[in-house]
Nucleic acid binder design. Structure first.
Lengths: 169, 169
DNA sequence: CAAAATTATTTTAAGCTTAAAACAATAAGT
DNA sequence: ACTTATTGTTTTAAGCTTAAAATAATTTTG
């Protein structure tokens, strides 16, 4: 513990307090604020305008992209929610006639979830308005801002994945 | 529907479908993915390492910054969650001895919520590790990336607020 | 082929979250 | 002072969410 003993990378990393990560913390809090703010407003408008919840809308959005339906476990991965969560969500959407559950013809464990015609029609109507809301919420960003933000978020996504899964796989 | 009839702004905006906002939609989905990814991992680690939930941690984080406690309604605004939500959360944190509820001396309706000494000590321990997790999750971003992302998220936040509250007030 | 491991889903228990209604206290306007 | 409006909190009902355990079917492996 000699004062003279300076680490080898002192030149490159400059003299740094022993671990100050407040900047990253602020960045994370700001990111979270943005998504909470926008998500809350989308949730509010979906309820007000269509009397639908955000999770229901999100699930239908996934299914709209899959004309032949999706396995529950794929939905779970895509939506980043637990299987158990989806079981209940699908139950309610089946009850309201928006989706149907079918046993997979190739795997008797698997359930294939698909939009009904009515569910798809209703979703498309909502999605049209939803897209405008988003455009409005991001309305003050220039095209350059948007592409730059897109790029930085892509980098953030990769960084987080690396930290979560490890560099391997 | 004449092929020759080109809109007046064709020069400046190029030939554009009537209202295409898929770019903003992708931006929103990417922002949401990033925050869901990071939030999920933080949630997982808090549980694994300290057996605490994220909402509990968030509430204690707010109180740690307020040595004299905070009114429940202020907590509600800061955390962007409903009052009713906080009532239950505070109930559980009182039960576990992390916070205390006091009636405000100046307003008999208001409840002042404060960290107990034990709650504060426990929070500080968790916060130390938490900061490292965040630094790791954002670890692949350069200092320039971070400041640029910070700037763009600030702009996004203002844009969303404008869209939510209207330009006035 | 039988045992073991994996994969797909559901169930359960606990906690989180919201909107809306109810309740209580303060502030504002007459 | 009295009425009205506003503010602060809690309650309620419904739905969302998770982790962990349970169930069932498929795949892998010895």
């Amino acid at each position: 513990m000699d004062d003279q003993a300076i680490p080898l990378d002192a030149e490159t990393k400059a003299v740094e307090q022993p671990e100050d990560h407040r900047e990253e913390l602020r960045l994370w809090l700001r990111l979270l604020t943005c998504s909470t703010l926008i998500e809350g407003e989308v949730r509010r408008r979906l309820r007000e305008r269509f009397d639908v919840t955000l999770p229901r809308f999100d699930l239908m959005a996934q299914l709209d992209k899959a004309p032949d339906g999706m396995m529950l476990s794929d939905l779970s991965k895509r939506m980043m929610v637990s299987n158990g969560n989806l079981t209940g969500l699908v139950d309610r959407l089946v009850a309201s006639g928006h989706v149907v559950r079918t046993v997979s013809p190739t795997d008797r464990r698997a359930m294939v979830i698909s939009l009904t015609d009515e569910g798809r029609a209703e979703f498309r109507t909502m999605a049209g308005e939803h897209e405008h809301w988003i455009a409005d919420l991001f309305g003050d960003l220039s095209a350059k801002d948007r592409s730059e933000l897109m790029r930085l978020l892509a980098k953030t996504k990769l960084s987080a994945r690396r930290a979560i899964m490890g560099d391997d796989q």
